[in-house]
């Protein structure tokens, strides 16, 4: 036990006064700063993000013969929502067609890409879902063929490790 428990204490404020952000006769608005980092797991989806760093686009597929849908998922999911079986990893073609798009002009704080840029949604043969990504060069048109590029050097370990270029 610390010696401190045995006697009286003198305590000092050791914070940093953060000051007033705004004030009037009626109210004070204080600053309330903080900075911290979350540690976030990719869990069973880790093979997908590892795949990006290896130049592979990995999806999951339900192969349960009892399942009515046997969907292929990208973004992947480890458990099939139709029959609750564990899905299996499959590599899917790293090419597809643009289904929808937007140009990001005004982004929220912390954006990791130069704005403006094109965000695209890609339809991939054999995949039941549509996959969101960003177009590295060119101008998107609905139906335009695109192929994936992977950031295998100096990866970000995030979804930004894949992008698309016109095919």
């Amino acid at each position: 036990m610390s010696k401190a428990y045995e006697g009286s204490l003198t305590t000092k404020y050791i914070g940093t006064p953060s000051g007033l952000f705004d004030q009037s006769d009626d109210f004070w608005v204080i600053n309330f700063p903080r900075s911290f980092t979350h540690q976030h797991t990719y869990g069973l989806l880790t093979p997908f993000f590892r795949g990006l760093t290896e130049g592979k686009l990995m999806a999951t597929k339900c192969t349960n013969p009892e399942c009515s849908e046997n969907s292929t998922w990208l973004p992947p999911r480890a458990d099939c929502p139709d029959c609750y079986a564990r899905t299996e990893w499959v590599q899917v073609p790293s090419e597809g067609k643009i289904y929808a798009y937007t140009m990001l002009d005004y982004a929220g704080i912390g954006i990791e890409m130069e704005t403006p840029y094109w965000q695209i949604d890609v339809q991939i043969e054999g995949v039941d879902t549509i996959f969101k990504g960003w177009l590295k060069q060119g101008k998107p048109v609905t139906g335009m063929p695109v192929k994936a590029e992977f950031r295998t050097e100096d990866p970000t370990y995030t979804i930004l490790d894949i992008c698309w270029v016109p095919k």
Binding site: H40, Y42, I109, K132, G133, I159
Partner: peptide, 10 residues
């Protein structure tokens, strides 16, 4: 947060 947030943050 894994597949969309970083793609725009808005």
């Amino acid at each position: 947060k894994d597949f969309e947030t970083r793609m725009g943050r808005i």
